[in-house]
Design a binder for these strands. Structure first.
Lengths: 132, 132
DNA sequence: ACACTTATTTAGAACCATTATAAACTGCAA
DNA sequence: TTGCAGTTTATAATGGTTCTAAATAAGTGT
């Protein structure tokens, strides 16, 4: 399995549950956005055994910490994650409550002129809200 | 009172509670960021009578709908609001969990090249996360 | 001023995403 | 195979936010 070493290399034991979640998250044509509840549903659909909700939370947070997932800054009652961990931005369709990836070529370079003493920029995220 | 007509003009009855919340939010030297709990505390400090938490939620949402407050897109268990409703962006200090305003002059113009059919851009918000 | 309608406030309950708990289980190194 | 640390699990607890329904206050017309 290709995910076994990936997990071992990050210090995560390649358990059955984690490997199955890897398949759901990363064996896809395209990257995608999800909430924990949506992921839970996908797992139910694609996998025979049950994975507890607590494990899903644990795994998603472990993967996020390792950089395999990103949280998307958004005001919602649910946390959104992204399997696309490259630097990129988002449209948010307010009506449909849906996120749409903006390719980096869709957004001109972002120039932050101000510095904060002793702080480094870790990420720059742009959210473009869409109306009708 | 200067807030009475402001509220009436937006179709909100100028109740005692709303006027007091206006004072806490808008009678300040500087704009500021807050969570509902932080606002509740400020109200307790500045005002004699009690305002119920439900009223604070109601009022903040009413003010946001009228454009007197903005929500800040951020992944946190609490919702952050901003009394600065002009177009501007934010640093987020991950260590201190603190927001810092970026003046518009601190960020070069943001050029969104992609269009979505029939949708208009309502806002563009940039979040710059800071590390040590 | 009065009566009437409608908006607002309120305490408390309900909701629900997320996190904590603690016991059972599993991977893995010795 | 044994032991230990890491992981999974069901369930409870937490906590921010929203809902509810009754009490109160504001606006309107008379």
């Amino acid at each position: 399995m290709k995910y076994i070493e990936k997990l071992r290399n990050s210090g995560l034991r390649p358990t059955k549950q984690r490997l199955q979640i890897c398949e759901v998250l990363f064996d896809t044509e395209r990257t995608f956005h999800f909430t924990i509840n949506q992921l839970e549903q996908r797992i139910k659909d694609k996998i025979d055994n049950k994975i507890s909700l607590a494990t899903i939370y644990n795994t998603v947070h472990a993967f996020e910490k390792k950089g395999y997932l990103k949280q998307i800054p958004l005001n919602s009652n649910q946390t959104y994650f992204d399997t696309n961990v490259t630097d990129h931005h988002h449209f948010y369709d307010l009506k449909k409550e849906k996120l749409i990836d903006l390719e980096n070529s869709d957004v001109g370079p972002i120039n932050i002129k101000r510095k904060i003493n002793g702080k480094k920029i870790k990420s720059i995220e742009v959210l473009v809200k869409l109306d009708d």
